[in-house]
Design a protein around this nucleic acid. Structure first.
Length: 219
DNA sequence: CCTTCCACCTGAGAGC
DNA sequence: TGCTCTCAGGTGGAAG
């Protein structure tokens, strides 16, 4: 379920908690959730500091003191929790990062669709995954260009992370509703004014959702 | 290349 | 109460 606004909220939460910490250990329940094998992951992470964060669409990227990137993707049920005592470990904590200050960060994910692994750089990861522009950054021209020759239903293309990164099922529905566009309409039949409305709706829905998450998450 | 379809995974909620 | 069934839904790869 996490879409761009939730991932952005997780990023802000991370920045206020785990950012700056140094990793001492990593506990992994199910190695199928790793995109980098466990031995390599542990070797690369142990002793490294978490320096800064980025987000492309729903992908959360943490730059390490080694220059490499730790990538978290939350799938549909992913979440983060920062806490101190082992007995406070959340129910569905699948991967737990331990820090030198005694605190822990859990990657929670009941349905195990989330993935964690390493990348060489933010740019390399974006290229490797063919991720399109982030939904908060995409320009009207970029949106027009990537839609004008496509015959697939507009909703399917909004969900395509190669075209625009960060839109999931409910936001696609909401955006199309606000722009008053029929979800099954082939993209190349959209009038320029419709694409403009779509672009505005994307930004509006994202901004509103992030603001709401920020308030909601504060308490 | 483009589009469509399905597997992946397991908890939540519904029905009985 | 407790079992079974269905649904959720982002991603990646296969198939056409």
């Amino acid at each position: 379920m996490p879409e761009l606004p939730e991932v952005e909220t997780y990023r802000r939460y991370f920045n206020e908690t785990a950012l700056g910490q140094t990793i001492t250990d990593v506990q992994v329940e199910d190695q199928r959730q790793l995109t980098t094998d466990y031995d390599t992951l542990l070797k690369e992470l142990k002793g490294t500091q978490l320096i800064k964060t980025d987000r492309i669409g729903k992908h959360f990227l943490i730059t390490l003191s080694t220059g490499k990137i730790l990538v978290l993707h939350f799938g549909m049920t992913g979440d983060l929790a920062y806490y101190r005592n082992e007995e406070d470990t959340p129910r569905f904590a699948r991967i737990v990062f331990l820090f030198t200050n005694g605190f822990r960060l859990a990657f929670i994910d009941s349905r195990k669709f989330g993935r964690v692994g390493l990348a060489e750089s933010v740019e390399a990861y974006q290229q490797e995954k063919s991720l399109g522009p982030d939904a908060l950054d995409i320009s009207l021209t970029q949106l027009q260009t990537s839609l004008q020759k496509r015959k697939a239903p507009i909703k399917a293309l909004l969900l395509d992370q190669k075209i625009i990164a960060g839109i999931g099922n409910w936001i696609a529905d909401e955006v199309l509703y606000q722009a008053r566009i029929f979800p099954a309409k082939p993209a190349h039949l959209l009038a320029p004014s419709e694409i403009a409305h779509l672009h505005q709706a994307i930004l509006h829905v994202m901004d509103t959702a992030i603001a709401h998450e920020a308030n909601y998450g504060a308490f």
